[in-house]
Amino acid sequence: MTVRNHITTATIAGSLAAAIAMLSAPAWGAPKPPQPTMDKCYGISLKGQNDCAAGAGTTCAGTSKVDYQGDAWKYVAKGTCDAMRTPKGMGSLMPIKS
């Protein structure tokens, strides 16, 4: 970190006081539903499906699902990636040539 911006103790004390005031405001009390205007804000707490964070469980059972024998490059991503694309094209996916 060569960039060293000077921050005075007074600035920090003021910020801390403001932070304490924010924390005691009701907005911080309970998680709120996401709002588009708040997208970049700390106030949003996204949880997702908590169980999805568990990762893999183990099992002492076999599986009767059948293996995928195909080669990966023959598949084209067909999930939500297309729905997130914009006219500008970001996030788009062109069909993959084999």
Partner: peptide, 27 residues
């Protein structure tokens, strides 16, 4: 193979949703 692919699907459900099940399994 299926057990370990499922293990990854369980840990990366958003990735799976973005590319779809077929592509995810192949990858």
């Amino acid at each position: 193979v299926v057990g370990l692919v499922n293990a990854l699907a369980k840990r990366f459900p958003a990735v799976q949703r973005i590319v779809g099940e077929e592509f995810f399994a192949a990858m």
